[in-house]
């Protein structure tokens, strides 16, 4: 007898299209004096990944206090399986001598990352290179404009040589950079130095390009 092949089960119906995400963001107040905080509030639906350009990735719903230095448009992007949805909130910053808030505002960190540069050292040396004098001067100017920012200068060395000697050399490198910053008018009390020797390399290949990367004074905001 012919064996009847069992009929395959009916194909499952295609899943319903995922609902598109919705998103709203507001700033209250939306006009502030320089240095005054404002509160961003946002809601989204059907979104698995929500980012605000200044804050990075955030919860689907939430609020956050920010202190913009200049007028800023906060741009929110909500992504979900059903697509993406944008929303914006504009904050206007008017002039006027607002007092500097104590805690380091977000934009200070942003500005720090943008304007403050590391400097690099020659082989087994801790004297500041001629070209880097200008970099330290620019760093000092930034710190004059942001007197509330305290920062640490880390001394780093490349992987060669002994662990103990590099710890001392890193200390000399951090102090050399600090001395230049202090001579440019920054109070010594707002600058901390620390040596990492060769314990925290920025890259680990054994070649001159990477070694040069690691012979440096690295500027970091002190928490």
């Amino acid at each position: 007898c012919s064996n009847k092949k069992p009929t395959p089960p009916p194909a499952a119906p295609p899943p319903p299209p995922a609902p598109a995400p919705t998103a709203t963001i507001t700033a209250n107040p939306n006009t502030v004096n320089a240095g005054q905080p404002t509160t961003l509030t946002w809601q989204t639906t059907n979104a698995t990944d929500v980012t605000i350009d200044v804050l990075g990735s955030v919860d689907p719903n939430g609020s956050k206090q920010v202190t913009p230095v200049e007028s800023t448009t906060y741009h929110l992007v909500a992504k979900g399986s059903g697509g993406t949805q944008d929303a914006t909130a504009r904050v206007t910053v008017s002039g006027g001598g607002a007092s500097q808030p104590d805690e380091i505002s977000l934009s200070d960190q942003q500005a720090f990352a943008k304007y403050v540069k590391d400097i690099y050292y020659d082989y087994d040396a801790y004297t500041v290179r001629a070209a880097d004098q200008a970099v330290l001067q620019a760093n000092a100017n930034f710190f004059k404009q942001h007197p509330n920012i305290h920062f640490t200068i880390e001394g780093h060395c490349d992987e060669r040589g002994s662990t103990e000697y590099n710890l001392a050399l890193g200390d000399n490198r951090a102090s050399a950079a600090k001395n230049a910053i202090v001579q440019a008018g920054i109070p010594a009390s707002s600058v901390r130095t620390i040596s990492y020797g060769k314990e925290k390399p920025f890259c680990t290949e054994s070649n001159e390009q990477c070694w040069q990367q690691n012979r440096r004074a690295h500027f970091v905001i002190s928490k």
């Binding site: 801790y126 002994s162 000697y165 001392a168 050399l169 200390d171 000399n172």
Partner: peptide, 10 residues
């Protein structure tokens, strides 16, 4: 014990 600029250690 020492008083000279530069690394002194180990």
């Amino acid at each position: 014990l020492t008083n000279v600029k530069g690394p002194d250690t180990s």
